[in-house]
Simulated scan of single mutants.
Amino acid sequence: MRYSLAVGLVALMVASSLTSASASAGARCRDVDAPVTVLGHREVVHGSLCTPAAGAATVQVLIPGATYNSSYWDFPDGKHSFRAAQNAAGFATFAVDRLGTGGSSRPPAVTLTAFVQADAMHQVVQGLRSGAYGPRFSRVVIGGHSLGAAISAVEAGTYKDVDGVLLTGMTHRVNPTGVAAAFANFRPANLDTKFGVLFPLGYLTTAPGTRYDSFHAPGRLVPDVMALEESTKDVFAPTEAVDGLGVAVLLPYSLLINVPVMTAVGSHDAAVCGPLATNCSTSETLHAAEAPYFRSPLRAYALPDYGHSINLAPNARDYYSAVSSWVREEVDR
Rank of each mutant, 00 (worst) to 15 (best):
A89S: 15
S81V: 04
V44G: 08
S71W: 07
A54Y: 00
A114S: 15
S104L: 10
P64E: 05
L39S: 14
G65E: 02
L99K: 01
N87Y: 07
N69W: 00
P52A: 06
K79C: 13
Y68K: 02
V61L: 15
G40Y: 04
V59D: 00
D77M: 09
S48P: 06
T93D: 09
T51V: 13
V116T: 15
M121H: 08
V44M: 13
V36H: 03
T67H: 03
L99Y: 04
A114I: 01
A120I: 05
Q60M: 07
R106F: 00
G55T: 01
P35D: 04
G65M: 07
L62H: 01
I63M: 06
D97S: 08
A27P: 05
F82H: 14
H122P: 09
F94Q: 09
A84M: 12
G100M: 01
T51L: 04
A53Q: 15
S70Y: 03
D33F: 05
C29A: 15
A120K: 01
V32F: 14
S104T: 08
V32K: 13
S24A: 15
P64F: 03
R106P: 10
S105K: 02
F91D: 07
N69F: 02
A95F: 04
M121D: 06
A23I: 15
L99F: 02
G103D: 08
S22A: 11
Q86G: 03
V36S: 12
H41L: 13
A88I: 08
H46A: 14
T58C: 08
P107N: 01
C29W: 01
A66T: 01
T113G: 04
A56Q: 00
F94I: 08
G90N: 07
F82C: 13
A120G: 11
L49N: 11
P108R: 00
C29M: 13
V96N: 04
T113C: 07
Y72K: 03
S22D: 14
G47P: 10
Q123Y: 03
A95H: 03
R42T: 15
P76D: 14
A56G: 04
T111H: 04
K79I: 00
